[in-house]
Design a protein around this nucleic acid. Structure first.
Lengths: 104, 104
DNA sequence: CAAACATTCAGCCGCGTGGCTGAATGTCGC
DNA sequence: GCGACATTCAGCCACGCGGCTGAATGTTTG
């Protein structure tokens, strides 16, 4: 018990998978991630919302889901909100997939 | 236009992403894939259903979702249905992820 | 063939999700 | 400070999803 929350870690890890895979399930959210990536990792909420036909309020919620999953972070810049891609978080998925391709 | 259905391909490809990411969104379905993998790639519907607290009919539907996404296939063996893991299909996800980690 | 077993098919239902609209918040320019 | 702008917050509604139960299908064994 040297490091404190040993048992907890795996619990919250499962939640993390849940959040990340859940976030990736929606096509609009996958598009957002790709768009931000191709815009060199940063994009304002307005620019992102402009990509979609639906109301920007809807996009706002998608952004919140992505941020809650740890896939995006934001920072206020003047009157805009700049969203930044958190690529490290995607490695969770990579890890999960890697299980299936390990040679025994 | 040398290869014929050029425009179509990307359409169905998008559907494929939709199906695969959608299938992976549910924790029970992720568990099923892992379980089948650790059982050396094959498992009967009954064995899979036994892993979960909920009714087996519910698991049946999860299996259908996974099969529709191309992540599992099945084959009748006596009175059991044997499900087999289709690892190749997971490479769709790998590809999608790879985009984010290419060095320019 | 009948009974037992493994599994799916069909239909019901409650809840979360994703779309919308209408207000609220925060920031810049004059 | 006021008005314009960018963005979020709050609340509404419809639809799909994932759970359930009850019947149907197909297969083996005596």
């Amino acid at each position: 018990m040297s490091h404190g929350m040993a048992g907890r870690e795996s619990k919250s890890r499962l939640d993390a998978y849940e959040a990340v895979f859940g976030a990736l399930a929606h096509p609009a959210r996958r598009r957002i991630l790709l768009a931000v990536y191709f815009a060199h990792g940063e994009m304002s909420a307005g620019e992102i919302a402009a990509m979609f036909p639906h109301a920007w309020q809807t996009t706002t919620r998608h952004l919140q889901v992505l941020e809650a999953a740890g896939l995006l972070s934001h920072e206020r810049q003047g009157r805009n909100r700049i969203y930044r891609l958190e690529r490290k978080r995607l490695t969770l998925v990579t890890e999960w997939l890697a299980t299936f391709f390990r040679k025994p």
